[in-house]
Amino acid sequence: MSNIIIFVSNLKKRKITMPTIYCNSSGLGSLLNELNQGLKIGDGVKLKINLDQDINYYDGYFVYHGFEVENMIKQKKKLIVDILKDRSLSPIADKKYSWFIKLPRTGKRGKRIFVYKLRTMQPYSEYMQDFIIKKNGLNDDGTIKNDFRVTKIGKFLRKYWLDELPMIFNLINRDVKLIGFRPLSDAMLKKYPKNFVSIRNRYKPGLIPPYYIDKPKSFDELIKSEKRYIAKYRKNGVLTDIIYFFKFLNTSLLKGVRSS
């Protein structure tokens, strides 16, 4: 590995089991590709990274390159992180992100659909979802607690549902309907009871979910909210969606209640 300084001296005395590698953030992608090729699964290194360019997506970036983050200390101009090789990959290039994104979700009958949204998170955030759900848990409405991946602009977009405007394309494509439970990622569906997932998959997801109206106080109440919607939808789908739509206008727009 060229232009890389490795510090491995006196490991037993300092109780360090990982070699230490110094590098600049501008060359981090190339370094991680080299490490993934050279290390065995389970091997680890400590990286001391000089932040010579402004990058704020390291958490998911390491996962993208096949590593698990064991420990991370972020400072103003330096990042210290312990990583373990989690899987073997061929050398990969950095991804390019734009404001307009499409996310894989589960649709009717378990079909894979792609939901269009405005990006509200840091780049590579999708690679951290499983980890953050396990670590932080979920809010009452099924969103992730203390989700540090969301940017300041992203919080504003979410508060006023602006990030969901591109889902109109999904509405036009008939991937979703106006009212219905949200299309979820695989990681989120794992939190649901398996028997309910099979029931949930029988129906087309929607743009405006029942919890916007019911305002559940726990994840269990969120599931009950979706079950109530399904029970009513089975009896009269069109009428149920009309009632939920006007309830949404009343609770979320006229009363000024916004998305979390």
Rank of each mutant, 00 (worst) to 15 (best):
E164T: 11
L89T: 03
G256W: 02
F114A: 04
D175F: 03
L84R: 13
V257E: 14
V197Y: 04
Y211L: 07
I80E: 15
L165W: 09
G256N: 00
V197M: 07
N250S: 15
R228D: 15
Y127L: 02
Y64A: 06
P209H: 13
R87Y: 03
N56T: 15
D214N: 14
I223N: 05
D214C: 01
Y127F: 15
N195Y: 15
V81A: 07
K135P: 02
G154M: 08
K190W: 00
F196K: 11
G142V: 06
M72R: 13
Y160D: 00
E226G: 09
L79N: 11
G38N: 15
K194R: 14
S198R: 14
K48H: 04
I179T: 06
D86A: 10
K191W: 00
K76Q: 10
H65W: 03
R105T: 06
G237Q: 07
L138S: 04
I55D: 11
Y160E: 03
F196S: 10
R119L: 09
N146H: 05
Y22F: 07
Y97P: 09
F248K: 04
P91R: 11
N3C: 06
R87I: 06
P19S: 05
S30I: 10
K215I: 12
P210D: 10
Y58T: 12
R228W: 09
K255M: 09
I6Y: 04
I144R: 05
G256D: 01
F148I: 14
S125C: 13
T251W: 02
V45I: 02
N195I: 12
G38V: 05
L35I: 00
K46E: 09
V69S: 14
D94I: 06
P205L: 10
L165C: 01
F219I: 00
F246H: 05
R105H: 01
T17E: 10
I113H: 03
D94T: 12
K224F: 07
N236I: 02
S90V: 05
L35H: 00
P209C: 09
I230Q: 05
P216R: 09
L118D: 01
D59K: 14
E70T: 15
G107A: 04
T143V: 06
D54W: 04
Y192Q: 12
L138P: 02
K255P: 05
L178N: 08
R149W: 08
L178Q: 09
N3G: 10
L254S: 04
I230R: 03
F114S: 11
R200G: 03
K255A: 08
K12I: 01
L138V: 04
Y192S: 08
I208Y: 07
Y211N: 15
L89S: 04
N56V: 11
F196H: 13
K190L: 13
R87F: 02
I55C: 14
N139I: 08
A187K: 08
